[in-house]
Design a protein around this nucleic acid. Structure first.
Lengths: 222, 222
DNA sequence: ACCTGAACACCGTTCAAGT
DNA sequence: ACCTGAACACCGTTCAAGT
C-alpha cells in the first residue's frame, strides 16, 4: 500500500511540532514523528540528514510565528512588541523554547521579526554597530528570562531548602544570614510583571546610554 | 573482589564532572561514570535516585567554584566580580553550562556567591524586594549570554545564509533589505567585550533607576 | 532514484537475586 | 542492609536490500 500522501520537510516539521507541543521534548523521536505520519523512522532521513536538522526546522516554524511590527510605531514600541511576542510564543511552545538558542533564525519567515526590529532601530538613527549590539543584548535577555521562567528557577526560593531538609535553620542563619533574611523575596510570583520590568529597564538604558545623540555612550567611548 | 574504595555522592559527582568536562554532555551516562569508578551503573543508584539528581550534584560542584567577593568592595564591584566569575566558570565547564538553568544553587558552598551578592547589595541600601529583583535580572543576563556564546548564536550572521545557499542574494535584498544592509555587524567577534558592555549597561541602569535614593524607580511606582 | 525494514550500538531504569 | 548483573523498553543511525 502506497503512502496516503507525499511527505515534505514542512509536513514532517509540523508533525514534529505537534508531538513536542503535546508530549514534550523527550517524546520527540524520529520513530514517534514518523509514526504520526504513518511511515517508518528512516523515511524522515530522506528529508533531514539527522535529528538536529529536524529540530532546526521545528525552531524555524516557531520563529515564523513571531510578530513583525511596522517601523512606524517607533523603535521602542517595535522592540517592546517583538520581545513580548518572543515570550508569548515561547510560552505557547514551552518544550521548544530550550531549542531556541541552538538554532538562529534562518528562513525568510523566521527572519521577518529581525528585519522589523532592525528597520525600526536603524530608522531611529542608531548606527549599524549599535543596532547589532541592541539585538544581541535583547536576545540575551529573551533567552535568559525563558531559562529562568521555564525551569521555575526562582519559584522555589533557596530558603525553602531549609524545609526540604537540605539544611537546618541554624545552619542557614549562621552561614547564609543575608540569604536567610531575604527569605521569600527571592521567589518570583509574577513572571509577566518581572519580564516587563526588566525589559523596560533595558529599553530605558539603551535609550539613555546608546542613543544617537548621546556622546560617549557605551558603544563609543567605553 | 571488593571495590578498591567506598563510593560517595561527592566522588561520583566529581567523576561525572570529569567525564562531562573531557567528553561532553552526551558522554555523561550512568554507565560511563560508573566505569570511571570501576563499578557498574546500578551502583550509582545507591547514592542518586536518578540521573537528574546526579546532574544536579554536578551543577552544585561547579557553582561552588564561583567567587564570593567581600561586601567591602561595594555592591557594584561585588556584582561585577560575581558576574564575570559566573561567565569564567561556565566557560571552564562549557558542557555543564546548559545544565545551570535547570538546577539552582542549593548547597552551602553553591550558595556562597548568592550570600555575597545579597550582602553587598543590601549593605548599599537596596531593600529586599529590589535586591531580589536585581538578582533575577542578572541571572537572566548570565544565562542568556551563555546561551548565545556557547551556541555561537551570532558567530554565523544571517547574511551568511546567502553564501550557504539558503537564500539567493536578490531574495535577501528584496525581502530583508535592512538585514542585508546590517551585514556582518550582527556577527559578534569579541564575546568578552560584549559581555562586559552589556553588564555595565545593566549595572548603570540599576544604579540610575533602582537606587535607594531615587523616587519612582522601576520597582516602586512602575 | 527514492524508500525502508532489520540490525547495531547504545541509553535510563526495573527487577530479581546476590552478599 | 546494601549492592549489582541481567533484562526491558527504548534511542539515533547504518546498512543492505527493496521498488
Amino acid at each position: 500500500m502506497p503512502p496516503r500522501r507525499q511527505l515534505s520537510e514542512r509536513m514532517i516539521a509540523e508533525a514534529a511540532l505537534r508531538v513536542v507541543d503535546s508530549e514534550g521534548l523527550d517524546a520527540l523521536t524520529m520513530r514517534r514523528v514518523a509514526g504520526e505520519l504513518g511511515t517508518g523512522a528512516m523515511s524522515l532521513y530522506n528529508y533531514f540528514p539527522d535529528k538536529d536538522a529536524l529540530l532546526d526546522a521545528v525552531v524555524q516554524l516557531v520563529l515564523a510565528e513571531l510578530e513583525a511590527p511596522p517601523a512606524e510605531l517607533g523603535w521602542k514600541e517595535v522592540v517592546r512588541r517583538i520581545m513580548h511576542s518572543v515570550r508569548r510564543t515561547a510560552l505557547r511552545h514551552p518544550h521548544v523554547a530550550p531549542l531556541l538558542p541552538r538554532f538562529p533564525p534562518r528562513t525568510l519567515d523566521a527572519l521577518a521579526f529581525v528585519e522589523a526590529g532592525f528597520r525600526a532601530t536603524r530608522a531611529a538613527g542608531f548606527d549599524a554597530v549599535t543596532t547589532a549590539s541592541i539585538y544581541r543584548v535583547l536576545a540575551s535577555y529573551s533567552f535568559g528570562t525563558l531559562d529562568i521562567e521555564l525551569n521555575s528557577y526562582f519559584d522555589a526560593p533557596p530558603v525553602a531548602a531549609q524545609a526540604a531538609d537540605l539544611m537546618s535553620a541554624p545552619t542557614l542563619a549562621k552561614h547564609l544570614p543575608t540569604l536567610a533574611e531575604m527569605g521569600p523575596h527571592v521567589q518570583n510570583s509574577d513572571h509577566d510583571e518581572e519580564f516587563s520590568r526588566g525589559l523596560e529597564l533595558l529599553l530605558a538604558a539603551v535609550d539613555q546610554l546608546m542613543s544617537p545623540g548621546r556622546v560617549g555612550g557605551l558603544t563609543g567611548g567605553g
